[in-house]
Design a protein around this nucleic acid. Structure first.
Lengths: 141, 141
DNA sequence: CTGCTTGCAAATAGTTTGCACGTTC
DNA sequence: GAACGTGCAAACTATTTGCAAGCAG
C-alpha cells in the first residue's frame, strides 16, 4: 500500500542523480510499510523478505545516502541503537528508559523550546534528530 | 581544588555501603576537576595521571556504580559516545552536529517542555539525560 | 562504457563481561 | 575473612570500510 509515496521517493532519488536499484526500492518500500521509527536491522529484516540478498552494509550505506539527500533522518535512542524514519513525517521521540517504549509526539510540542534556545543561545535545534529520555506513563510508579 | 566536593562525594559513597578505593577517589577527583561533561576516556586520561594502573573497564564499572547511587549521570551525545557528569550540577546538553561543540544550558530552560509532556502524554522526562542536536551559533551560516 | 552501488569479509569504536586475584570493611 | 572491586583479555553490538565485481544511466 501507499505505492504513491514510494514512487514519489523513488522519483526524488532519480531527480537528484542517484541511481535507482532494487535494493533502494526495497528499502524505501520497507520504510513506508513500517511507517515510523525503525532500526537498520528492522529494515534489513523487512527488505530481506522481497530481496533476500541485500546485505546489512548496503542498508547502512543506502540510509546514509538517503539521509544526505534529505529523504531520511536518524535519531539516536541511546545505548548505541539508532532509528531511522522518512523525513516527510516530522516528529520527536520520547524513549522510556524503563521499558524501552518509544512514543512519537508532534514537532509542535517543541516549538517553544526551539524558539527560546535560538533566542538565548543562538542554537538552532534540529527537529526530530534527538530522543528525549524519561519514564512513560505505564512505568511511572 | 574543591577538595570539599570530592570529600562529600566520598562520604556519600561510604554511607551507602560502597567501598572507597584509590580508583574511586581518583575518578571522583577527576570528575570534579573536569567540572562538566567528560567521556569515559577523558576520565581515564585524567585518572591515569595520578593512578597509572586504573583500567578503562574499571572506569566504566565505577561510573555505572556511581550512577546507580545517583552521584553521576550519563548522556548519549549520538554516534555511540556518552558523556558523564556529576549529578549535583543539573544541566542539559546542546550538541552542534557541525562542529561537535557541546553547550550546557540550565535545566530550567526545559521546565515548560517537561510540564507539557507530563500533562499531555504522562511522560516524565529525565532531566540531563539526553542531548539536543542542532547547530550552534557559530555554525549557523 | 563509466562510475555509482553492492556483497562480502574484515576492521572499528565504544562498552561490557568472565575470571582469578587483591583490597576494604 | 567475606564480599566487593579491579586488572586483563576476550566478547559484544552497532556501524564502517576496502576491494573486486555488478548494474544503472
Amino acid at each position: 500500500m501507499d505505492a504513491a509515496r514510494v514512487a514519489r521517493l523513488i522519483a526524488e532519488l532519480r531527480s537528484r542523480g542517484a541511481r535507482v536499484t532494487g535494493a533502494r526500492r526495497a528499502l524505501l518500500q520497507a520504510m513506508v510499510d513500517a511507517d515510523g521509527h525503525v532500526t537498520a536491522e528492522d529494515i534489513a529484516r523487512r527488505v530481506e523478505a522481497a530481496h533476500p540478498d541485500v546485505h546489512l552494509s548496503t542498508i547502512y550505506r543506502t540510509l546514509d545516502a538517503l539521509e544526505n539527500l534529505g529523504l531520511v533522518d536518524h535519531v539516536h535512542l541511546g545505548h548505541g541503537r539508532a532509528v531511522y524514519h522518512l523525513s516527510d513525517d516530522p516528529h520527536q521521540h520520547l524513549v522510556c528508559e524503563q521499558c524501552g517504549a518509544v512514543v512519537e509526539v508532534p514537532d509542535a510540542t517543541f516549538a517553544q523550546l526551539k524558539a527560546s534556545l535560538l533566542e538565548d543561545y543562538g542554537f538552532a535545534i534540529r527537529p526530530n534528530h534527538f530522543a528525549v529520555i524519561g519514564r512513560c506513563a505505564a512505568c511511572t510508579t
